[in-house]
């Protein structure tokens, strides 16, 4: 498994994701009460960057048509999005949050 550095854990603010690009993938990493979660940053409905959306209580809302996604599972919670977001494992190494594309 290859791990990519995102940012030092202490730099994360609640409800404000950090975004990294790995190859073609754009991944957003969120700090929630129970840990760090990484999801694809592109909405599955049309094309929008989810880290530009409103985030609260472990959910992120698409800035274009307001589909909601569960950050922990990637699940699409309501239309217009139907398809879940890809989720990625995270870990902390030497105080730095890392994500893997598996």
């Amino acid at each position: 498994m290859v791990w990519h550095d995102v940012a030092p854990a202490e730099d994360f603010e609640p409800d404000v994701p950090k975004v990294i690009e790995v190859g073609e993938e754009r991944i957003a990493v969120y700090h929630l009460d129970d840990g760090f979660y990484a999801i694809s940053d592109i909405c599955t409905h049309q094309y929008a960057i989810l880290s530009d959306g409103f985030c609260e209580h472990g959910k992120v809302e698409c800035p274009l048509h307001q589909a909601c996604f569960d950050i922990r599972t990637g699940r699409a919670l309501d239309e217009p999005a139907e398809i879940a977001l890809a989720t990625y494992p995270t870990r902390i190494e030497g105080g730095v949050v890392q994500v893997s594309l598996g």
Binding site: F54, E61, P63
Partner: peptide, 8 residues
């Protein structure tokens, strides 16, 4: 260009 403020 400010969908983040939709819910607020």
């Amino acid at each position: 260009d400010n969908g983040r403020d939709a819910t607020p």
